[in-house]
């Protein structure tokens, strides 16, 4: 009973917060600004979205193009970032080689790389995937590295006391202990990857959600612009939800401790 009440109120708060935001938006558009070349009501955006998805279907090629770019960049970042992060945690040699590059590339603004990558990989999918890859790589890499480095010393000692060999130590202690950190990195990577998609498609693209937003902005098509932004937001929420489910599935032991 008690738990129900505790679970109910955050949900209500969240719904209330979203509703309040939409209402404020609607009020600002319809009452305060009243200029559809600057801001339109969420209702207009919704009807535009309906039109683009159901009536004309013109949204889907853009959605598909962006999803493909995101998917490749994101998956490659995980395939490279997780093992490289582990290697850095386990080998000081690898760590010292990778560290300066990691710091430099991570802190540099990614948008600055876009023209260079475009030059190197051409205006096709290659450069876009590379931009997304760069965006997703570092949160995954850094978290995998960090997660394995901060594994509780007690667990490592336990492994030694029970004479686990190095492979068993990795598989039974270090890897499971790192999973929550890796997933936190993956979660960050989703946001950065979607940003990467938007950036990538602003440069010389002919389709994709980023292109859609960019083009709508240039032609002052405010409803379409907002549809593009909203689709990005929905993709982000969807991605977070998927990671949350993976988290529950892979780390059921975190139980109540999840928030802490």
């Amino acid at each position: 009973m008690n738990e129900d009440r505790r679970n109910l109120s955050p949900l209500l708060l969240r719904l209330g917060s979203v509703l309040a935001g939409l209402l404020a938006w609607h009020y600002a558009a319809e009452v305060l600004i009243k200029d559809s070349s600057i801001l339109v009501s969420p209702l207009v955006v919704l009807s535009k979205a309906y039109e683009m998805m159901i009536a004309t279907g013109e949204l889907y090629p853009h959605l598909f193009a962006s999803s493909v770019i995101f998917f490749y960049g994101f998956v490659m970042a995980i395939l490279v970032g997780v093992p490289l992060g582990f290697l850095m945690a386990l080998s000081p040699l690898v760590r010292d080689y990778v560290n300066p590059w990691m710091t430099t590339l991570y802190t540099a603004p990614r948008i600055a790389f876009a023209p260079v990558l475009l030059l190197w990989f051409g205006i096709g999918a290659g450069s876009k995937v590379a931009i997304v890859f760069l965006g997703c790589l570092f949160p995954v890499l850094i978290n995998s590295y960090y997660g394995m480095r901060v594994v509780n010393r007690e667990y490592v000692e336990l492994a030694r006391s029970y004479r686990l060999d190095r492979w068993a130590l990795f598989r039974k202690i270090l890897l499971p202990a790192s999973v929550p950190y890796i997933l936190a990195g993956v979660r960050l990577a989703i946001g950065r990857g979607l940003t990467g998609v938007a950036i990538a498609e602003w440069f010389g693209a002919t389709e994709g959600l980023g292109y859609l937003i960019f083009f709508a902005g240039q032609t002052l098509n405010i409803p379409v612009l907002f549809v593009g932004v909203a689709v990005f937001a929905v993709l982000g929420i969807l991605g977070f939800e998927i990671v949350r489910r993976v988290e529950i599935y892979t780390t059921p032991w975190r139980g109540q401790a999840q928030g802490g």
Binding site: L158, Y162, L164, W253, A257
Partner: peptide, 24 residues
């Protein structure tokens, strides 16, 4: 060795924790 802090692996159930020393 019986540790001062229980040193149980949080991702393993009681049974799996006890199995740790027997595996392999």
């Amino acid at each position: 060795f019986v540790f001062q802090g229980a040193s149980l692996l949080p991702w393993r159930t009681s049974l799996k924790n006890v199995l740790l020393g027997l595996e392999g």
